[in-house]
Write a protein that binds this DNA or RNA. Structure first.
Length: 877
RNA sequence: GGGCGAUUAGCUCAGUUGGUUAGAGCGCUACGUUGACAUCGUAGAGGUCGGCGGUUCGACUCCGUCAUCGCCCACCA
């Protein structure tokens, strides 16, 4: 080993770009379809092509990078396929907004002109997030980057449409759909967000024709009454029996509409009379079909009133129309009353305004067949969700699934591959390539729902529908890492296409990431302004520290309260690791090459112990990663590095380094090196930059770059004896420190120590006397069963050993007495508890032998301690 | 109206198949320039594991129930 000395502090900026370039130049990220290695594949959840990196992306992509980097080190053909999504409705909204700022209205543009602007926008802002992912350190195979509107991917999307159409799964229908008046497009049920809104319930009087009577109906949407075509009551509602078959005169409109009876009506609610607006409410739509009512659409695509409404209201916004209708009814004396009312209103996910139910002709996907294998795969355990409870949400949705409206009245996206003959509109052509005589045909103007393209992602990133080496090597993928908010939009639908088109699952494990919230529990979002820019965080803490910190604070399946100061843990840890390495390096002579083969040596306790702890750390770390507990895995590593290695072993190694015994020093160097190399390897997936940098200071001359170094195996035998002995030693040392701290002995001053203990213990302590002295700051030590307790000393009892530290006049007798009395109370409490158990015959008979034995052994230890503490207390009296 | 999740130290959270003297980090207190690290060290204070029942020899852990908070789903005008 010979490397330049490490700087005093780690400087992330100086190494991050350097190593990323190095990895790229060496082509380490590239996955070979013809490799003999087993594949390990992840497809990235493609971010919006014009999106920017958020803290949520940092979490999500770090997890994927961890899985990929680990599998690469394990010798798999690791393939992480990146890409971006055209995000039809979201991007189109952004482009429309951008054009509006320039004073251009979408409606003034042709489709071609609009798309030119959209592509221009995509060229300008697309790819930013890809560059940002590189800064994050993501080891994606950039040669495989895909965009959902690439030619190849588009072919896949259209092929899927054609195949499903030919199977009869896709049909066109004139239906009531969710309509976004901002996008002026249909949207799917999943794109409707229900929110509670404080509104009113208005009660209107509808006069019965040829009668003085009237019915009172209640509504939260008065303006829709202009489209009413019936009033419904429950068939068994006695209050209204005499009105069956009659009609009412619809106020403001004058239309005569029937009174119908329908089971849908709840006689208990309100007055038991419901106004029926078949063209603007799903329930009313159903009633309209049952009773063959008239469907009167009274709104335009922007939700303003159309000419089917009385002239006065035509052109009004729905909000104005509402006010006007209420005012006019009130003026006519037909407003019965107005109540405050909280109801759920459906909002457009992208348009952020209430949706309308709107009659229009749309394309739908039949879901009932697609759902079957997808349900079976998850319930049969072929696809595993982490955490598992999301399967319930998944099942519930799948079991109640409705046909999916896949057409959008948008331009940015995949235009539906259906052509209508110019002479005969009912003649249609459906294909990927289009008709041979395009001049005679007109293509359907609608675009497909974004999710009807991204649901093909795991296969569409390859040549599908063509078979090729990539598809067969890298499909199915191994893990999917995504947010639970798109379980319906995306996860469920990919499973459907997987089985439909590949007859196989798309991924084996789905890891649902946490939702990030701020300290007050609000979701981190750009619009709320509570989402920090990851790049500020990278600058402040270092990219590795941000990755590490965020992984440490993200429990599986729970929301994460994100706060910047928790990233300090990451930064501090990087500093700790750096300095531990620096210290070890400082104590390895230049050109030191005679590394000791520690496996064949008889090692002292601290060496045996730390190597055992290291082996256990590898095991625990792997186990936690295998079950996708990323936070717990990294915590295991953190604790080993900080608590075991730095706090204890490095301190112990100092005595080796500074002693004369060169052999001991060399063993300590080799042991420390082994620990460091292993920690760097394990940590690499979480914090790739700093580990690669340090690796090059500590690796063996001929070792490869860390990114492709072999994953550590826990070959060292763990020793229970060493674990136990070391614990004893640590307890003794801690007790000594505790006494000294209690008595305010400055670290610079050494103490004398007397230990009353049996012969075996005495030998044990003697063997490790050097450590005891240096770590406990002890000058002279007297050990044995016949040593006398020095006067004016403070005491501690450790596993039957009585420790005495003489303190001259420093001892505060009252304080010491108080401490001992407190301990005696505690011991008595424990002893009482154990006696309770041991005197219970059921416990003796039914509990396993070792549990009973453990209680007995605890009892004897505690009794011994009680005896000794009591004796020491008496001596103080 | 259904479903899911959470409730453990002041704060944020660990706690694998029921048996620990219930842990960590931050914060707090005291001391500290001890041959890497003050982004640090040493020692310490702090919890009847949300309430009530139950199963069990034994429950933070399993079951029931209630409470509070948070999400998701649902056509009640």
């Amino acid at each position: 080993m010979s490397t330049p000395t490490l700087e005093k502090a780690y400087n992330p900026a100086s190494v991050e770009d350097k190593w990323y370039s190095h990895w790229t130049e060496k082509n380490y990220f590239h996955a070979d379809a013809h490799s003999k290695k087993d594949p390990y594949t992840i497809v990235i959840p493609p971010p919006n092509v014009t999106g920017m990196l958020t803290v949520g992306h940092v979490l999500n992509n770090t997890i994927q990078d961890i899985l990929i980097r680990k599998s690469r080190m394990e010798g798999k053909e690791a393939c992480w396929i990146p890409g971006t999504d055209h995000a039809s409705i979201a991007t189109e909204a952004k482009v429309v907004a951008m054009l509006k700022e320039k004073g251009i209205k979408k409606s003034d543009l042709s489709r071609e002109e609009f798309l030119e602007h959209a592509w221009e926008w995509k060229e300008k802002y697309g790819g930013i997030i890809i560059r940002q992912l590189k800064k994050l350190g993501c080891s994606c195979d950039w040669d495989r980057e895909r965009f959902t509107m690439d030619d190849g991917y588009t072919r896949a999307v259209l092929s899927a449409f054609v195949k499903l159409y030919e199977k009869g799964f896709i049909y066109k229908g004139y239906r009531l759909v969710n309509w976004c008046p901002v996008s002026k497009s249909a949207i799917s049920d999943e794109e409707v967000i229900h929110q509670e809104v404080n509104g009113h319930l208005w009660h209107f009087r509808y006069p019965i024709t040829d009668s003085d009577e009237y019915l009172v109906v209640a509504t939260t949407r008065p303006e829709t009454m202009l489209g009413d075509t019936a009033v419904a009551i429950h068939p068994e509602d006695e209050r209204y029996q005499h009105l069956f078959g009659k009609t009412v005169a619809l106020p403001l409109v004058g239309r005569e509409i029937p009174i119908i009876t329908d089971d849908y009506v709840d006689p208990e609610f309100g007055t038991g009379c419901v106004k029926v607006t078949p063209a603007h409410d799903p329930n009313d739509f159903a009633m309209g079909e049952r009773h063959k009512l008239e469907f009167i659409n009274i709104i335009n695509d922007d939700a303003s009133l159309n000419s089917n409404a009385p002239e006065k209201y035509v052109g009004m916004t729905r909000e104005d129309a509402r006010k006007a209708v209420v005012a006019d009814l009130e003026a006519e004396g037909l407003l019965d009353k107005t109540e405050d009312y909280v109801n759920k209103v459906g909002y457009s996910e992208r348009g952020h305004v209430p949706i309308e139910f709107y009659m229009s002709e749309q394309w739908f996907m039949k879901m009932d067949e697609l759902v079957k294998p997808a349900l079976a795969a998850v319930n049969g355990g072929k696809i595993k969700f982490h955490p598992e409870h999301w399967t319930k949400t998944y099942n519930h949705w799948m079991e109640n699934i409705k046909d999916w409206c896949i057409s959008r009245q948008l331009w940015w996206g995949h235009q539906i591959p259906v052509w209508y003959h110019n002479d005969d509109n009912s003649k249609i052509h459906v294909s990927v390539e289009g008709p041979e005589d395009p001049e005679n045909w007109t293509q359907d103007p609608d675009a497909l729902d974004t999710w009807a393209s991204s649901w093909l992602w795991p296969m569409g990133v390859h040549a599908w529908p063509e078979e090729d080496a990539n598809l067969s090597k890298f499909y199915p993928t191994d893990a999917l890492v995504t947010g639970p908010d798109i379980i319906f939009f995306w996860v469920a639908r990919m499973i459907m296409t997987g089985y439909e088109f590949m007859d196989d699952l798309p991924f084996k494990d789905v890891y649902f990431t946490s939702i990030l919230r701020d300290e007050t529990g609000r979701k981190l979002s750009k619009s709320l302004g509570n989402s920090p820019d990851p790049f500020d965080l990278f600058d402040e803490y270092g990219t590795d520290a941000v990755r590490f910190g965020i992984m440490l604070m993200a429990p599986q399946g729970l929301d994460v309260l994100f706060s910047k100061d928790r990233l300090e843990i990451g930064r501090n840890f990087m500093n700790k690791l750096w300095n531990a390495c620096r210290f070890v390096q400082m104590n390895i002579p230049e050109n030191w090459e005679d590394e000791v083969d520690i496996d064949s040596q008889k090692l002292d306790l601290p060496e045996t112990w730390i190597l055992g702890r290291l082996a256990k750390t590898i095991d625990d770390f792997n186990r936690q990663l295998d079950r996708f507990h990323f936070n717990e895995a990294v915590k295991v590593l953190y604790e080993f590095t900080w608590n075991d290695f730095c706090d204890w072993y490095v301190e112990i190694a100092k005595t080796r380094f500074f002693d004369d015994n060169e052999n001991d020093a060399n063993i300590a160097r080799s042991v420390a090196l082994k620990c460091i190399r292993t920690v760097l390897a394990l940590l690499h997936p979480y914090s790739p930059f700093i580990t690669e940098e340090l690796w090059h200071h500590f690796k063996k001359e001929d070792a490869k770059d860390l990114i492709i170094a072999p994953w550590p195996e826990s070959e060292t035998t763990k020793s229970d004896t060493a674990e136990k002995d070391m614990a004893t030693l640590q307890e003794v040392i801690t007790s000594i420190r505790s006494i000294r701290s209690r008595m305010n002995v400055p670290p610079s001053k050494f103490s004398d120590l007397t230990v009353r203990c049996n012969g075996e213990q005495s030998l044990f302590l003697l063997e490790h006397l050097d450590l005891l002295k240096s770590l406990g700051r002890i000058q002279d030590a007297k050990l044995g069963d016949s040593v006398e307790k020095p006067s004016q000393s403070a005491t501690a009892v450790v596993q039957g050993m009585e420790l005495y530290i003489p303190l001259g006049g420093l001892v505060d007798l009252d304080q010491e007495k108080g401490r001992m009395e407190k301990r005696i109370v505690e011991i008595n409490r424990l002893i009482t508890g154990i006696n309770g158990k041991l005197s219970n015959e059921n416990f003796i008979n039914r509990a396993p032998e070792q549990v009973v034995e453990k209680e007995r052994s605890n009892l004897s230890k505690l009794s011994e301690e009680l005896e000794k503490v009591t004796a020491n207390l008496e001596m103080l009296q």
